[in-house]
Design a protein around this nucleic acid. Structure first.
Length: 289
DNA sequence: CTGGTCTCCTGATCGC
DNA sequence: TGCGATCAGGAGACCA
């Protein structure tokens, strides 16, 4: 569901309700959506079904902690306690963090974790597809995945050039790689490439410095504009206060395959690039790469 | 190392 | 109305 603008919208929306609150109680309903310190090492997927899940200490879900703030890096969100403990949240494709005031209604299905606050409010982690998850972080631990690249919202030209570092793969594949750049997903990769007039299959290493500068600027502008619009709502996405985003009305290419380009009128093309449906304009972004 | 493909999971939608 | 095929905002495992 979410890319950087949706996660940043979530962060801004939740923060005023959480900061300064004490976590009165916390419940993890499915052990296999969380990774705790001491869990077997290895990839996320292989950690989700340990032969015998370790029991969690009750304070690992931040029970008893006072919430100091919410930080975001790329698409990851960290709920940080005043004592340094934290919970890193990945929303994956279908994850949501929902808030309900005292006695407010919350969905019952696919709810994997629940926190109750000292003002009676509740916070819920819901994720039907379970591609997302929670990382429980001790004080002093890594709040974000250490391999994440620079945050895309403020990516500079030199920074992007260094991150791409001669990658011999389509620029779209590189933009989707969170180790290169943190925060861009399928929607904003296509929108940014259109804005920079770069073909999604252009080999990253073949882009000259001026084009990489243009791309960095396009990514910053596209993401900032999407954050201002409170993200993109495809299907039924809502932020925690129930508000849909508004950026989907401004998509130039994503979801518009076969329609006319807003820039030149040509029909937008679509194909699989980096295993993801990709839409571009053969007029504005070229037919060769 | 690199880059392409497969896979995890559920739900919405579309054509028949 | 039902039913199977297809697709989805992500990303790690696996393979050549």
């Amino acid at each position: 569901m979410p890319e950087l603008p949706e996660v940043e919208t979530l962060r801004r929306s939740l923060e005023p309700h959480l900061v300064g609150r004490t976590v009165a109680a916390a419940t993890l309903h499915r052990r296999d959506i969380a990774v705790a310190p001491g869990d077997p090492p290895g990839g996320f997927a292989r950690q989700r079904t340990p032969a015998r899940p370790r029991r969690l200490a009750r304070d690992q879900m931040l029970a008893g902690a006072v919430i100091a703030g919410l930080e975001r890096r790329g698409k990851q969100l960290a709920i940080i306690a005043t004592d340094g403990r934290a919970i890193r949240v990945h929303l994956g494709m279908s994850g949501q963090l929902l808030r309900a005031a005292r006695a407010g209604r919350l969905p019952g299905d696919h709810v994997h974790a629940t926190w109750r606050l000292d003002d009676g409010g509740r916070l819920v982690f819901r994720d039907p597809r379970r591609f997302g998850g929670l990382w429980l972080v001790d004080a002093g631990g890594e709040r974000f995945d250490a391999a994440l690249g620079p945050d895309a919202l403020a990516i500079g030209a030199a920074e992007l050039r260094a991150a791409l570092d001669g990658a011999r793969r389509p620029i779209k594949a590189a933009l989707l790689d969170q180790r290169v750049l943190a925060g861009v997903g399928n929607i904003y990769a296509d929108e940014s490439l259109f804005a920079a007039r770069i073909h999604p299959r252009a080999i990253a290493a073949a882009l000259d410095p001026p084009r990489i500068s243009a791309l960095a600027a396009a990514i910053r502008r596209t993401l900032a504009s999407a954050v201002r619009a409170r993200g993109s709502s495809i299907r039924d996405y809502r932020d925690p206060s129930g508000e849909p985003g508004g950026f989907q009305a401004r998509h130039r290419v994503y979801g518009r395959a076969g329609l006319a380009c807003h820039g030149c009128g040509r029909m937008l093309a679509s194909d699989l690039v980096a295993q993801r449906t990709t839409v571009w304009c053969p007029g504005c972004q070229g037919t060769d790469y």
